[in-house]
Protein backbone atom coordinates (compact mmCIF):
# COMPACT_ATOMS: atom_id res chain seq x y z
CA UNK A 1 0.00 0.00 0.00
CA UNK A 2 1.36 3.34 -1.00
CA UNK A 3 -0.25 6.68 -0.52
CA UNK A 4 0.76 10.16 -1.54
CA UNK A 5 -0.53 13.04 0.50
CA UNK A 6 -0.24 16.72 -0.29
CA UNK A 7 -0.79 19.16 2.53
CA UNK A 8 -1.56 22.79 1.81
CA UNK A 9 0.87 23.13 -1.12
CA UNK A 10 1.58 26.68 -2.30
CA UNK A 11 4.10 28.15 -4.73
CA UNK A 12 4.57 31.50 -6.47
CA UNK A 13 6.54 32.47 -9.54
CA UNK A 14 7.56 36.10 -9.66
CA UNK A 15 4.69 37.18 -7.42
CA UNK A 16 2.18 35.10 -9.36
CA UNK A 17 0.48 32.54 -7.18
CA UNK A 18 0.61 29.34 -9.20
CA UNK A 19 -0.71 27.03 -6.48
CA UNK A 20 -2.47 27.93 -3.27
CA UNK A 21 -3.40 25.61 -0.43
CA UNK A 22 -3.75 22.42 -2.45
CA UNK A 23 -4.28 19.24 -0.40
CA UNK A 24 -5.32 15.75 -1.36
CA UNK A 25 -4.44 12.11 -0.95
CA UNK A 26 -3.89 9.50 -3.66
CA UNK A 27 -4.06 5.83 -2.72
CA UNK A 28 -2.68 2.70 -4.27
CA UNK A 29 -4.94 0.75 -6.56
CA UNK A 30 -6.70 3.95 -7.55
CA UNK A 31 -6.45 6.43 -10.39
CA UNK A 32 -6.46 9.94 -8.98
CA UNK A 33 -6.97 12.53 -11.69
CA UNK A 34 -6.08 16.19 -11.56
CA UNK A 35 -8.13 18.26 -13.96
CA UNK A 36 -8.61 21.92 -14.60
CA UNK A 37 -8.33 24.51 -17.35
CA UNK A 38 -5.00 25.46 -18.90
CA UNK A 39 -2.85 27.36 -16.43
CA UNK A 40 -4.66 25.89 -13.45
CA UNK A 41 -1.33 24.65 -12.08
CA UNK A 42 -1.54 20.95 -12.86
CA UNK A 43 1.94 20.46 -14.28
CA UNK A 44 3.38 22.73 -11.60
CA UNK A 45 1.81 20.42 -9.05
CA UNK A 46 3.46 17.45 -10.75
CA UNK A 47 6.79 19.22 -10.69
CA UNK A 48 6.41 19.81 -6.97
CA UNK A 49 5.45 16.21 -6.27
CA UNK A 50 8.40 14.93 -8.28
CA UNK A 51 10.89 17.29 -6.64
CA UNK A 52 11.68 19.53 -9.58
CA UNK A 53 10.21 22.57 -7.83
CA UNK A 54 10.27 23.30 -4.12
CA UNK A 55 6.94 24.49 -2.75
CA UNK A 56 6.98 27.77 -0.80
CA UNK A 57 4.71 26.21 1.78
CA UNK A 58 3.12 22.86 2.40
CA UNK A 59 4.26 19.27 2.52
CA UNK A 60 4.46 16.25 0.29
CA UNK A 61 4.16 12.95 2.16
CA UNK A 62 4.69 9.43 0.92
CA UNK A 63 3.15 6.90 3.30
CA UNK A 64 3.30 9.55 5.99
CA UNK A 65 6.99 10.37 5.50
CA UNK A 66 7.74 13.99 4.69
CA UNK A 67 9.58 14.04 1.36
CA UNK A 68 9.11 17.72 0.52
CA UNK A 69 12.06 19.11 -1.40
CA UNK A 70 13.85 15.82 -1.91
CA UNK A 71 15.75 15.53 -5.17
CA UNK A 72 13.93 13.85 -8.07
CA UNK A 73 16.25 10.84 -8.09
CA UNK A 74 15.75 10.31 -4.36
CA UNK A 75 12.00 10.39 -4.86
CA UNK A 76 12.39 7.81 -7.61
CA UNK A 77 14.17 5.67 -5.06
CA UNK A 78 11.08 5.97 -2.89
CA UNK A 79 9.09 4.39 -5.67
CA UNK A 80 7.94 7.32 -7.74
CA UNK A 81 7.94 7.47 -11.54
CA UNK A 82 6.44 9.82 -14.06
CA UNK A 83 5.86 10.64 -17.69
CA UNK A 84 6.19 14.10 -19.17
CA UNK A 85 3.69 16.28 -20.93
CA UNK A 86 6.20 17.43 -23.53
CA UNK A 87 7.98 14.07 -23.91
CA UNK A 88 11.42 13.56 -22.45
CA UNK A 89 12.63 10.71 -24.61
CA UNK A 90 16.26 9.65 -25.01
CA UNK A 91 16.03 10.06 -28.76
CA UNK A 92 19.46 8.83 -29.76
CA UNK A 93 18.93 5.60 -27.88
CA UNK A 94 16.90 2.62 -29.08
CA UNK A 95 13.40 2.12 -27.74
CA UNK A 96 14.70 -0.81 -25.72
CA UNK A 97 17.55 1.23 -24.25
CA UNK A 98 15.07 3.93 -23.27
CA UNK A 99 13.10 1.47 -21.26
CA UNK A 100 16.20 -0.29 -19.92
CA UNK A 101 17.26 3.05 -18.46
CA UNK A 102 14.14 2.72 -16.33
CA UNK A 103 15.71 -0.36 -14.70
CA UNK A 104 18.46 1.78 -13.21
CA UNK A 105 17.41 1.31 -9.61
CA UNK A 106 17.22 -2.45 -10.05
CA UNK A 107 20.70 -2.70 -11.47
CA UNK A 108 23.86 -3.33 -9.52
CA UNK A 109 25.77 -0.16 -10.00
CA UNK A 110 29.50 -0.66 -10.25
CA UNK A 111 31.13 1.34 -12.97
CA UNK A 112 34.36 -0.67 -12.90
CA UNK A 113 32.49 -3.94 -13.34
CA UNK A 114 30.72 -2.29 -16.24
CA UNK A 115 33.93 -1.08 -17.89
CA UNK A 116 35.64 -4.44 -17.58
CA UNK A 117 32.51 -6.20 -18.78
CA UNK A 118 32.45 -8.53 -15.78
CA UNK A 119 29.84 -11.30 -15.70
CA UNK A 120 27.89 -9.45 -12.99
CA UNK A 121 27.49 -6.48 -15.29
CA UNK A 122 26.41 -8.60 -18.25
CA UNK A 123 23.92 -10.50 -16.14
CA UNK A 124 22.48 -7.23 -14.96
CA UNK A 125 22.18 -6.05 -18.55
CA UNK A 126 20.39 -9.21 -19.60
CA UNK A 127 17.91 -8.95 -16.75
CA UNK A 128 17.19 -5.34 -17.58
CA UNK A 129 16.67 -6.21 -21.22
CA UNK A 130 14.16 -8.91 -20.30
CA UNK A 131 12.22 -6.59 -18.01
CA UNK A 132 12.31 -3.79 -20.58
CA UNK A 133 11.17 -6.10 -23.36
CA UNK A 134 8.22 -7.15 -21.20
CA UNK A 135 7.28 -3.54 -20.52
CA UNK A 136 7.50 -2.72 -24.23
CA UNK A 137 5.20 -5.64 -25.02
CA UNK A 138 2.74 -4.48 -22.41
CA UNK A 139 2.40 -1.07 -24.10
CA UNK A 140 2.32 -2.65 -27.55
CA UNK A 141 5.79 -1.64 -28.67
CA UNK A 142 7.38 -5.09 -28.65
CA UNK A 143 8.01 -4.88 -32.37
CA UNK A 144 10.01 -1.67 -32.40
CA UNK A 145 12.39 -2.43 -29.53
CA UNK A 146 15.53 -1.98 -31.58
CA UNK A 147 14.47 1.08 -33.53
CA UNK A 148 16.03 4.40 -32.52
CA UNK A 149 13.48 6.20 -30.35
CA UNK A 150 13.82 9.26 -32.56
CA UNK A 151 12.17 7.33 -35.42
CA UNK A 152 8.98 6.48 -33.54
CA UNK A 153 5.64 8.22 -34.02
CA UNK A 154 4.24 10.59 -31.43
CA UNK A 155 1.73 8.06 -30.18
CA UNK A 156 4.45 5.43 -29.89
CA UNK A 157 6.67 7.82 -27.94
CA UNK A 158 3.84 8.50 -25.51
CA UNK A 159 3.60 4.76 -24.88
CA UNK A 160 7.38 4.43 -24.73
CA UNK A 161 7.41 6.88 -21.82
CA UNK A 162 4.74 4.84 -20.11
CA UNK A 163 6.79 1.67 -20.58
CA UNK A 164 9.85 3.41 -19.17
CA UNK A 165 7.91 4.52 -16.10
CA UNK A 166 6.37 1.07 -15.73
CA UNK A 167 9.64 -0.77 -15.82
CA UNK A 168 10.84 1.10 -12.74
CA UNK A 169 8.21 -0.93 -10.86
CA UNK A 170 7.26 2.24 -9.06
CA UNK A 171 4.40 2.12 -6.61
CA UNK A 172 3.43 5.70 -7.39
CA UNK A 173 3.21 6.72 -11.04
CA UNK A 174 2.34 10.15 -12.37
CA UNK A 175 1.08 10.52 -15.93
CA UNK A 176 1.09 14.00 -17.44
CA UNK A 177 -1.39 13.98 -20.31
CA UNK A 178 -0.50 10.51 -21.54
CA UNK A 179 -3.10 10.55 -24.30
CA UNK A 180 -2.59 14.10 -25.56
CA UNK A 181 -2.20 14.15 -29.32
CA UNK A 182 -3.18 10.52 -29.71
CA UNK A 183 -6.04 9.34 -31.88
CA UNK A 184 -9.16 7.72 -30.46
CA UNK A 185 -7.84 4.18 -30.76
CA UNK A 186 -4.48 4.97 -29.17
CA UNK A 187 -6.21 6.97 -26.50
CA UNK A 188 -8.43 4.03 -25.66
CA UNK A 189 -5.40 1.74 -25.41
CA UNK A 190 -3.67 4.11 -23.04
CA UNK A 191 -6.87 4.27 -21.00
CA UNK A 192 -6.90 0.54 -20.50
CA UNK A 193 -3.22 0.47 -19.78
CA UNK A 194 -3.50 3.04 -17.01
CA UNK A 195 -6.47 1.27 -15.48
CA UNK A 196 -4.55 -1.98 -15.46
CA UNK A 197 -1.52 -0.30 -13.86
CA UNK A 198 -3.72 0.94 -11.05
CA UNK A 199 -5.42 -2.41 -10.59
CA UNK A 200 -1.97 -3.98 -10.30
CA UNK A 201 -1.68 -1.99 -7.09
CA UNK A 202 0.15 1.22 -7.98
CA UNK A 203 -1.11 4.62 -6.93
CA UNK A 204 -1.71 6.42 -10.23
CA UNK A 205 -1.98 10.16 -10.54
CA UNK A 206 -3.17 11.44 -13.87
CA UNK A 207 -3.36 14.79 -15.58
CA UNK A 208 -5.57 14.55 -18.60
CA UNK A 209 -7.65 16.83 -20.81
CA UNK A 210 -9.72 14.08 -22.36
CA UNK A 211 -12.74 14.21 -20.07
CA UNK A 212 -14.22 10.95 -21.30
CA UNK A 213 -11.02 9.20 -20.32
CA UNK A 214 -10.85 10.92 -16.94
CA UNK A 215 -14.44 10.09 -16.10
CA UNK A 216 -14.08 6.52 -17.20
CA UNK A 217 -10.93 5.49 -15.37
CA UNK A 218 -10.62 7.76 -12.32
CA UNK A 219 -11.60 6.67 -8.87
CA UNK A 220 -10.96 10.12 -7.53
CA UNK A 221 -10.82 13.54 -9.17
CA UNK A 222 -9.27 16.79 -7.99
CA UNK A 223 -10.29 19.94 -9.83
CA UNK A 224 -7.89 22.87 -9.90
CA UNK A 225 -8.62 26.38 -11.07
CA UNK A 226 -6.19 29.26 -10.85
CA UNK A 227 -4.01 27.27 -8.49
CA UNK A 228 -6.80 26.41 -6.06
CA UNK A 229 -8.64 23.19 -5.50
CA UNK A 230 -12.26 23.93 -6.26
CA UNK A 231 -13.69 20.44 -6.05
CA UNK A 232 -12.77 16.89 -5.21
CA UNK A 233 -14.53 13.57 -5.22
CA UNK A 234 -15.69 10.67 -7.33
CA UNK A 235 -16.42 11.25 -11.03
CA UNK A 236 -20.10 11.37 -10.07
CA UNK A 237 -19.68 14.20 -7.57
CA UNK A 238 -17.39 16.20 -9.79
CA UNK A 239 -19.60 15.77 -12.83
CA UNK A 240 -22.53 17.18 -10.93
CA UNK A 241 -20.70 20.15 -9.50
CA UNK A 242 -21.87 23.20 -11.47
CA UNK A 243 -18.92 25.40 -10.51
CA UNK A 244 -16.56 22.76 -11.87
CA UNK A 245 -18.22 22.77 -15.22
CA UNK A 246 -18.21 26.52 -15.26
CA UNK A 247 -14.63 26.95 -14.11
CA UNK A 248 -13.30 24.21 -16.27
CA UNK A 249 -14.85 25.20 -19.55
CA UNK A 250 -15.95 28.76 -19.05
CA UNK A 251 -19.55 29.92 -18.95
CA UNK A 252 -19.99 29.83 -22.72
CA UNK A 253 -18.66 26.31 -22.94
CA UNK A 254 -20.75 25.05 -20.07
CA UNK A 255 -23.57 23.89 -22.28
CA UNK A 256 -21.47 21.75 -24.59
CA UNK A 257 -19.49 20.60 -21.58
CA UNK A 258 -22.63 19.42 -19.93
CA UNK A 259 -23.30 17.37 -23.00
CA UNK A 260 -19.76 15.97 -23.05
CA UNK A 261 -19.73 15.10 -19.40
CA UNK A 262 -23.14 13.52 -19.36
Amino acid sequence: MTSLTLENIGISFGGLRALDGVSFTANSGEVTSIIGPNGAGKTTLFNIITGIYQPDIGKVLIDGTDVTGEAPHDLARRGMARTFQNLQIFEQMSALDNVMAGRHLHERRNVLADMFGLPSSRKCNRESAIAAQAALKRVGLGGVANRPAGDLSYGQLKRLEIARALTTEASLILFDEPAAGCNAVESREIDDLISSIASDGAAVILIEHDMRMVMRISSHIIVLDHGRKIAEGTPETVRKSPQVVEAYLGVHGAKEAGAALA
Binding site: T50, I52, A71, P72, H73, A76, R77, M80, A81, R82, F84, Q88, I89, F90, A101, G102, H104, L105, R164, A165, T168
Partner: peptide
Protein backbone atom coordinates in the same frame (compact mmCIF):
# COMPACT_ATOMS: atom_id res chain seq x y z
CA UNK B 1 14.98 15.48 -15.92
CA UNK B 2 13.87 12.18 -17.39
CA UNK B 3 17.03 10.47 -16.12
CA UNK B 4 16.45 11.81 -12.61
CA UNK B 5 12.82 10.68 -12.71
CA UNK B 6 14.13 7.13 -13.18
CA UNK B 7 16.31 7.36 -10.09
CA UNK B 8 19.53 8.23 -11.89
Amino acid sequence: VAAASLGI
